[in-house]
Simulated assay, not measured.
Amino acid sequence: MLAINSWRKLKSLSWSELILLIQAFLLLPLVAFGIKCFGFRRLYEKIANFSFSQTQVEKKDGIKQARAIAKIIEVASRYGLYKPNCLQKSLLLWWLLQQRNIVTELRIGVRKKAEVLEAHAWVEYQGCVLNDRSDVDQVFAPFAGAILPVEVKTL
């Protein structure tokens, strides 16, 4: 039954959504590999300067597109062969949105649980959490500002 429902959902995707899902399946392990090989900061800096789109996205369309892309990345992470962590998913989401000129913030927060310091990453668009629960900033104390690449070249 689960496979039939999954197949029906897959068939209901538009071509652009299907292409994005395939990209997510392929890019999630590459992001993980990049973080492992180059470190988060260096990879973040490199992909921040790599963008395809030059068009502006209207506010109303931005949140709708951002949520749709976040949902597709979540599907890819749930059903793909590679199981990414929150930083890997958030970094890919942030980058795919940047490509579409949807300006978002990559956020990282921490909490102490049973004497262990835990960290968590998520993406926000105009203060709305895209890829996590809306109260994630209550569970994990976010750093004072968004995590920004060291050098971002403007066009």
Rank of each mutant, 00 (worst) to 15 (best):
W94R: 06
K83H: 12
S6L: 14
V31N: 00
E124V: 04
L43W: 00
A68Q: 15
I108V: 15
N49Q: 00
D137N: 15
S14T: 12
G145C: 14
P84T: 03
S53P: 00
K60D: 15
Q23L: 15
D61G: 14
I19K: 12
V150M: 14
W94A: 01
E115P: 04
F52R: 11
I108K: 07
E17Q: 08
V139A: 01
I19T: 09
A114S: 11
L30D: 02
N5S: 12
Y82C: 08
S12N: 08
K11N: 05
W95A: 04
L155N: 09
L91C: 03
K112T: 13
I47R: 02
I147G: 07
F52M: 11
M1W: 08
I47P: 10
S53R: 11
W7I: 12
A119P: 02
K60T: 15
L117Q: 02
F143H: 00
G109M: 10
P149F: 01
C86M: 10
P29I: 04
V75T: 07
L13C: 09
A119I: 11
E17A: 05
R41T: 08
A66D: 01
Q138G: 01
S51E: 12
E124N: 09
Q126L: 10
N5A: 09
L93Y: 04
F52G: 07
E124H: 06
D132S: 14
H120T: 10
S53V: 08
I22K: 01
Q56C: 13
F40I: 05
R100T: 03
S53M: 08
R42M: 06
A48G: 15
L81W: 10
R41W: 01
K36I: 00
T104A: 14
A141T: 15
I102G: 07
I19A: 12
L155C: 08
G80R: 02
V150S: 15
L27Y: 04
A68L: 14
I4D: 12
N131Q: 03
P84W: 00
A24H: 02
K89R: 11
Q99F: 10
A119G: 09
N85E: 11
C86F: 10
E45Y: 06
T104I: 12
S77A: 15
I102K: 05
I73S: 06
G80M: 05
D137F: 12
L130K: 06
H120I: 09
L30R: 06
T104D: 13
I4M: 13
R41L: 08
K89C: 11
R42I: 01
D132T: 01
L93F: 03
K71W: 05
A119L: 09
I73C: 10
I69G: 07
G62E: 05
I72P: 00
I47E: 02
F140M: 06
Q99H: 15
L106W: 02
A141E: 15
E45M: 10
V139K: 01
V75Y: 03
I47S: 04
A32Q: 10
E17R: 02
K46Y: 09
K83G: 04
R78E: 14
F143A: 09
I4V: 14
G80E: 03
D61Q: 14
K113S: 07
K60Q: 12
R42P: 05
V75M: 11
R41G: 00
L2D: 13
F143P: 04
I102Q: 07
L87D: 00
L106C: 06
E124Q: 09
